[in-house]
Nucleic acid binder design. Sequence first.
DNA 1: TAGCTTACGCTACGTAGCGTAGTGTAATAT
DNA 2: ATATTACACTACGCTACGTAGCGTAAGCTA
Lengths: 207, 207
Amino acid sequence: MGAPAIPGVMKRGRPRSEQVERAILRAAGDLLTEHGLAAMTIEDVAARAGVAKTSIYRRWSTKGTLALDAFLADFLGSQPLPDTGNLENDLTAALRAWVRTVRGTPTGRALAELIAQAQSDPDLAVAWRERVVGPARAQHRKILEHAVARGEIPDTSDVEVLMDLLFGTAYHRLLQGHLPLTDRFVRRVVAVIVAGAKAGAAAPPTP
Amino acid sequence: MGAPAIPGVMKRGRPRSEQVERAILRAAGDLLTEHGLAAMTIEDVAARAGVAKTSIYRRWSTKGTLALDAFLADFLGSQPLPDTGNLENDLTAALRAWVRTVRGTPTGRALAELIAQAQSDPDLAVAWRERVVGPARAQHRKILEHAVARGEIPDTSDVEVLMDLLFGTAYHRLLQGHLPLTDRFVRRVVAVIVAGAKAGAAAPPTP
DNA sequence: TAGCTTACGCTACGTAGCGTAGTGTAATAT
DNA sequence: ATATTACACTACGCTACGTAGCGTAAGCTA
């Protein structure tokens, strides 16, 4: 209590209230869930949190980065790292967990709207890649590296492409909305990728 | 000239000016190219087109649908239907053409921003699926059906999933921006999908 | 030709949300 | 005690939205 995280750079003046921070994130999360990102305004968040607008702007520069923090509070940890000793099972479990989290849920809509917002908000785009895309891919990379270690797929496989195939396909249906994210979809996507990877198609051709 | 498209439902009063329509679409297309969709305003479009705002609202209900029409004027017909007699070559040609159109181009940014806008504009979302996603998929479906007809892949293959794999993966890199759309990426994505499809992984399992 | 109807450009308006500034008070370190 | 920063509150100027009213223009119908 009151002890500085880093002695010597102790801040002077009144410290920022953690309670204010929590109230803002909670209000933003609620509004994100109830009405979506596009309909969420900073003024609404402030009113709902019982906080002044300036207390929000002091912490976040754009609506997108605020929404990202509110989103991560709910989203982090919902994506497991399966390790069954079988690539197809692991990928199926990972994609199924993702589908369960996003299909027809406020989380799914928030996910889509955050990606949308990032197309015109460079700050959010950077934060999104660093705090969502990066960590998620690190998880999925492990699944593929385990498969390489087991000899299921060639060690020259382009794991980045394989990850793009798996989740790019799923994000496609989420964002375009042309077809539903069914379990059959999950199984077939995984089956094609695993078959292709095992055939060495994700590796450089050996002439 | 002056003849009604459907006799009997001849409109009364002053007809809408095609010149106004063209001026609006041209101005919207220019602004979309120069500044992007997020920065484009109806007022700017009106000013640039030398037209009243009401003349725009009379024709389009939202910025998104206007931008879609402006976008299609430039985008339509840029995606060829390759038919070389070989699935891998056809898919590679199709994806390469798409990459060439979108990578580092205003068209690519407009594409991303339209998908973004569709996440919070239901009218645009419907129009997008009907006028962009639908026609594009119809093209790509032919490529896969030709491969089925040639016996390259099983006739039970889930062509919808295969299309999602091909373009979903590419859209993923466009929208997330985590990795570039290189030609090696194109070749590996196609190789995995073709290998998987030929192995029957996109078809229902035969017990 | 006269009359009806709709489109058009123009100006003006009310609304919403943005991001900032000013004020007085509260909380902490020196 | 004093300096410094955070906070709530109020107010402000700004931008863009979407609509309304006006007079004029351009077609049809009688």
